[in-house]
């Protein structure tokens, strides 16, 4: 009885907190299978057509396990890889919001579900 109550409480608590794998599954369901290689290409690629930053690494640095720094404001940014920062890719709404902002920032357009799935798969693969 007590244990069931506890389990119930835990479930209620984690209702909106997903795991990175669950977030990836959600994206794959829209896009099809994800590619870690393509994800890394998006992360490291240099693009034109965006605004101040020409790449994801301009703010998130070349090493996803290290803290980044915002290209314009210079504020420190926690590492983007879940292995180094455990709340990364655990809130679907937050992930969606930053893909929207940062793809506009770097690519000058929104990212496709495929690109989001690839990027997420790459970040999960960083060990």
């Amino acid at each position: 009885m007590k244990i069931r109550l506890l389990a119930l409480l835990l479930c209620a608590n984690s209702a909106h907190a997903d795991t990175p794998q669950q977030i990836l599954d959600g994206l794959v369901a829209q896009a099809g299978p994800a590619s870690v290689t393509r994800g890394e290409k998006l992360f490291r690629g240099k693009f034109s057509g965006g605004k101040t930053a020409d790449s994801c690494t301009a703010c998130h640095t070349e090493n996803a396990k290290l803290p980044g720094q915002h290209a314009r404001t210079h504020k420190a940014i926690d590492p983007i890889a879940p292995v180094a920062q455990k709340d990364r890719f655990t809130d679907a709404a937050k992930v969606e919001k930053w893909f929207k902002r940062n793809c506009q920032e770097v690519l000058g357009r929104v990212c496709s579900a495929q690109e989001k799935a690839d990027f997420t798969a790459y970040m999960i693969s960083v060990k």
């Binding site: 720094q69 314009r72 404001t73 210079h74 504020k75 420190a76």
Partner: peptide, 12 residues
């Protein structure tokens, strides 16, 4: 300095 960069980076 690299870790400061702008006047508005108060938290640095």
């Amino acid at each position: 300095r690299k870790k400061i960069g702008t006047l508005a980076n108060c938290i640095a």
